[in-house]
């Protein structure tokens, strides 16, 4: 993924995994007043078109930075700067654990058991927390110096989250 413009720059935020959401909201609001096509109704067709595209970019940037998984994937793309990463790699043993969890979810879907389901939900949430905590540490190191190993570790981390989120959706 090679983004055309750095969303962190668009919003005037420091590049990093931690984002002050209140600040992001305030800047999104301010920038919307600058670029939203509704304020260009009297402009030339070219200017109108430009406003549509700028606003589309602003909306995409806001959506990406507002959402943790999307922000992680995006920041990783920026850091990788075109270097190819294995988008399927997962930590050793992770898939086996996921299969075991998936089986439990399958069983619960066949024969619902609220207590067991809640417990499983907590287990998945705990795994997610651990994955995210690991990610904060990995990003801190990668921002200081992005080695191929660190980038790949982050990619695996993002992949793990995707699996866990899918499981969580099934448990919701």
């Amino acid at each position: 993924m090679t983004p055309e413009r750095d969303y962190f720059q668009v919003f005037g935020l420091a590049r990093g995994y931690a984002v002050d959401l209140a600040e992001l909201d305030a800047r999104y609001e301010r920038l919307s007043f600058d670029v939203h096509p509704d304020f260009f109704a009297a402009a030339t067709p070219a200017e109108k078109q430009r406003a549509e595209r700028l606003a589309a970019e602003l909306n995409a940037g806001y959506r990406t930075l507002r959402d943790e998984p999307e922000r992680a994937a995006y920041l990783l793309g920026l850091l990788a700067a075109g270097r190819a990463l294995d988008t399927r790699q997962l930590p050793a043993g992770f898939l086996q654990q996921m299969f075991a969890l998936q089986e439990q979810v399958d069983e619960l879907e066949a024969a619902p058991e609220p207590a067991a389901k809640a417990e499983l939900g907590r287990a998945v949430a705990a795994r997610l927390d651990a994955v995210r905590a690991e990610r904060v540490a990995l990003f801190a190191r990668a921002l200081a110096g992005a080695t191929p190993e660190l980038l790949q570790a982050l990619q695996s981390n993002v992949n793990c989250e995707k699996y866990l989120l899918r499981l969580q959706a099934r448990l919701a």
Partner: peptide, 16 residues
């Protein structure tokens, strides 16, 4: 009201 905004009569809210 939105027509009024588009006509430049006000610019105190943005619609998303």
């Amino acid at each position: 009201i939105q027509g009024h905004l588009l006509a430049g009569g006000r610019r105190d809210y943005v619609l998303l």
